[in-house]
Protein backbone atom coordinates (compact mmCIF):
# COMPACT_ATOMS: atom_id res chain seq x y z
CA UNK A 1 0.00 0.00 0.00
CA UNK A 2 1.25 3.47 -0.81
CA UNK A 3 0.80 6.45 1.53
CA UNK A 4 -2.73 7.90 1.68
CA UNK A 5 -3.33 11.27 0.03
CA UNK A 6 -3.91 13.56 2.98
CA UNK A 7 -3.91 16.91 1.22
CA UNK A 8 -3.45 18.49 -2.17
CA UNK A 9 -2.34 22.12 -2.42
CA UNK A 10 -4.24 24.28 -4.93
CA UNK A 11 -3.66 28.05 -5.10
CA UNK A 12 -6.79 30.12 -5.72
CA UNK A 13 -6.62 33.28 -7.78
CA UNK A 14 -9.43 35.67 -8.62
CA UNK A 15 -9.52 38.82 -10.69
CA UNK A 16 -12.33 41.31 -10.41
CA UNK A 17 -13.65 44.17 -12.48
CA UNK A 18 -14.95 46.66 -9.97
CA UNK A 19 -17.77 49.00 -10.98
CA UNK A 20 -17.11 51.97 -8.76
CA UNK A 21 -20.44 53.73 -9.21
CA UNK A 22 -20.98 57.48 -9.18
CA UNK A 23 -20.06 58.26 -5.57
CA UNK A 24 -16.91 56.16 -5.51
CA UNK A 25 -15.88 57.43 -8.97
CA UNK A 26 -15.92 61.02 -7.76
CA UNK A 27 -13.92 60.01 -4.70
CA UNK A 28 -11.31 58.08 -6.70
CA UNK A 29 -11.00 60.86 -9.30
CA UNK A 30 -10.51 63.29 -6.43
CA UNK A 31 -7.59 61.20 -5.15
CA UNK A 32 -6.04 61.40 -8.64
CA UNK A 33 -6.08 65.20 -8.17
CA UNK A 34 -4.68 65.01 -4.64
CA UNK A 35 -8.05 65.87 -3.07
CA UNK A 36 -10.15 63.94 -0.57
CA UNK A 37 -13.84 64.19 -1.44
CA UNK A 38 -16.60 63.08 0.87
CA UNK A 39 -20.36 63.45 0.65
CA UNK A 40 -22.71 65.26 2.99
CA UNK A 41 -26.16 64.05 3.98
CA UNK A 42 -28.92 66.60 3.28
CA UNK A 43 -30.81 65.51 6.42
CA UNK A 44 -28.24 64.94 9.19
CA UNK A 45 -25.43 66.97 7.54
CA UNK A 46 -22.87 64.28 8.39
CA UNK A 47 -19.99 63.90 5.95
CA UNK A 48 -19.18 60.37 4.83
CA UNK A 49 -15.75 59.26 3.70
CA UNK A 50 -15.34 57.31 1.50
CA UNK A 51 -18.71 58.37 0.09
CA UNK A 52 -21.36 55.76 -0.61
CA UNK A 53 -23.94 57.90 -2.36
CA UNK A 54 -26.35 57.50 0.54
CA UNK A 55 -26.52 58.22 4.23
CA UNK A 56 -26.73 54.86 6.08
CA UNK A 57 -28.46 56.53 9.02
CA UNK A 58 -31.10 58.57 7.20
CA UNK A 59 -31.47 56.30 4.17
CA UNK A 60 -31.50 59.20 1.70
CA UNK A 61 -29.22 60.11 -1.24
CA UNK A 62 -26.16 62.07 -0.07
CA UNK A 63 -24.81 63.66 -3.17
CA UNK A 64 -23.46 66.96 -1.92
CA UNK A 65 -19.71 66.87 -2.49
CA UNK A 66 -17.62 68.01 0.48
CA UNK A 67 -13.85 68.36 0.31
CA UNK A 68 -12.27 66.97 3.46
CA UNK A 69 -8.94 68.07 4.96
CA UNK A 70 -5.86 65.86 4.55
CA UNK A 71 -5.28 66.49 8.26
CA UNK A 72 -6.99 64.66 11.06
CA UNK A 73 -6.91 63.05 14.49
CA UNK A 74 -5.97 59.52 15.50
CA UNK A 75 -9.04 58.36 17.43
CA UNK A 76 -7.65 54.91 18.21
CA UNK A 77 -5.03 52.58 16.77
CA UNK A 78 -3.18 49.30 17.07
CA UNK A 79 0.41 48.22 16.62
CA UNK A 80 0.67 45.27 14.24
CA UNK A 81 3.50 42.83 14.90
CA UNK A 82 2.46 40.13 12.43
CA UNK A 83 4.03 40.42 8.98
CA UNK A 84 1.40 40.67 6.27
CA UNK A 85 1.50 38.55 3.15
CA UNK A 86 0.39 41.44 0.97
CA UNK A 87 1.46 44.66 2.65
CA UNK A 88 5.11 45.61 2.21
CA UNK A 89 5.59 47.52 5.44
CA UNK A 90 8.05 46.11 7.95
CA UNK A 91 6.61 45.15 11.35
CA UNK A 92 5.90 46.62 13.76
CA UNK A 93 3.66 49.17 12.10
CA UNK A 94 0.69 51.23 13.25
CA UNK A 95 -2.83 51.09 11.83
CA UNK A 96 -5.02 53.89 13.06
CA UNK A 97 -8.60 55.07 12.87
CA UNK A 98 -8.15 58.63 11.60
CA UNK A 99 -10.92 61.21 11.72
CA UNK A 100 -10.10 63.73 8.99
CA UNK A 101 -11.12 67.31 9.69
CA UNK A 102 -14.47 67.86 8.04
CA UNK A 103 -15.43 64.16 7.96
CA UNK A 104 -17.77 62.44 10.41
CA UNK A 105 -16.50 58.87 10.09
CA UNK A 106 -12.89 57.75 10.56
CA UNK A 107 -10.82 55.99 7.92
CA UNK A 108 -8.33 53.21 8.70
CA UNK A 109 -4.77 53.96 7.56
CA UNK A 110 -1.07 53.58 8.31
CA UNK A 111 0.90 55.94 10.53
CA UNK A 112 4.54 56.22 9.47
CA UNK A 113 7.49 58.63 9.94
CA UNK A 114 6.96 58.43 13.69
CA UNK A 115 8.38 56.16 16.42
CA UNK A 116 5.73 53.58 17.32
CA UNK A 117 5.77 54.46 21.01
CA UNK A 118 4.85 58.06 20.16
CA UNK A 119 1.59 57.16 18.43
CA UNK A 120 -1.30 57.94 20.75
CA UNK A 121 -5.03 58.62 20.79
CA UNK A 122 -5.57 62.27 19.89
CA UNK A 123 -2.36 62.55 17.81
CA UNK A 124 -2.76 65.02 14.93
CA UNK A 125 -1.67 63.63 11.56
CA UNK A 126 -1.52 64.61 7.89
CA UNK A 127 -1.69 62.64 4.66
CA UNK A 128 1.52 61.88 2.79
CA UNK A 129 0.77 61.63 -0.92
CA UNK A 130 2.70 59.88 -3.65
CA UNK A 131 4.61 62.36 -5.92
CA UNK A 132 2.26 64.47 -8.06
CA UNK A 133 3.14 62.61 -11.25
CA UNK A 134 2.16 59.30 -9.67
CA UNK A 135 -1.31 60.28 -8.39
CA UNK A 136 -3.96 57.83 -9.56
CA UNK A 137 -7.61 57.09 -9.02
CA UNK A 138 -6.89 54.80 -6.08
CA UNK A 139 -6.63 55.07 -2.32
CA UNK A 140 -2.97 54.17 -2.76
CA UNK A 141 -2.39 57.78 -3.83
CA UNK A 142 -2.17 58.41 -0.08
CA UNK A 143 0.91 56.52 1.07
CA UNK A 144 0.32 56.90 4.77
CA UNK A 145 -0.23 59.52 7.46
CA UNK A 146 2.43 61.16 9.63
CA UNK A 147 2.37 63.48 12.66
CA UNK A 148 1.54 67.06 11.66
CA UNK A 149 3.27 68.79 14.60
CA UNK A 150 0.05 70.24 15.98
CA UNK A 151 -0.97 69.91 19.64
CA UNK A 152 -2.96 66.73 20.42
CA UNK A 153 -6.72 66.88 20.01
CA UNK A 154 -8.67 66.85 23.29
CA UNK A 155 -10.35 63.51 24.11
CA UNK A 156 -13.78 65.14 24.13
CA UNK A 157 -13.29 66.30 20.54
CA UNK A 158 -13.26 62.72 19.22
CA UNK A 159 -14.76 60.50 21.94
CA UNK A 160 -18.08 60.19 20.12
CA UNK A 161 -16.16 58.63 17.22
CA UNK A 162 -14.72 55.81 19.34
Amino acid sequence: MSEPVTSIRRPVRLEYDFTAGRAMSRFLLGLAEGRILGQGCPECARVYLPPRGTCPTCGVPAEEEVEVSPRGTVTTFCVVNIPSQVLVVPVPYVCANILLDGADVPIFHLIQECPIEEVRMGLRVEAVWVPAGELKATFESIRHFRPSDEPDAAYDSYREHL
Binding site: C78, I82, V86, C95, I107, F108, H109
Partner: peptide
Protein backbone atom coordinates in the same frame (compact mmCIF):
# COMPACT_ATOMS: atom_id res chain seq x y z
CA UNK B 1 -7.45 40.38 2.86
CA UNK B 2 -7.81 41.55 -0.67
CA UNK B 3 -6.45 44.65 -2.31
CA UNK B 4 -9.25 47.00 -3.34
CA UNK B 5 -9.04 50.45 -4.92
CA UNK B 6 -11.68 52.00 -2.69
CA UNK B 7 -10.10 51.12 0.63
CA UNK B 8 -6.82 52.28 2.14
CA UNK B 9 -4.00 49.81 1.41
CA UNK B 10 -3.99 48.61 5.01
CA UNK B 11 -4.24 45.01 6.01
CA UNK B 12 -3.99 43.86 9.55
CA UNK B 13 -6.10 40.70 9.91
CA UNK B 14 -9.08 40.38 12.26
CA UNK B 15 -6.94 41.26 15.28
Amino acid sequence: TISVPFQPPVVAGAG
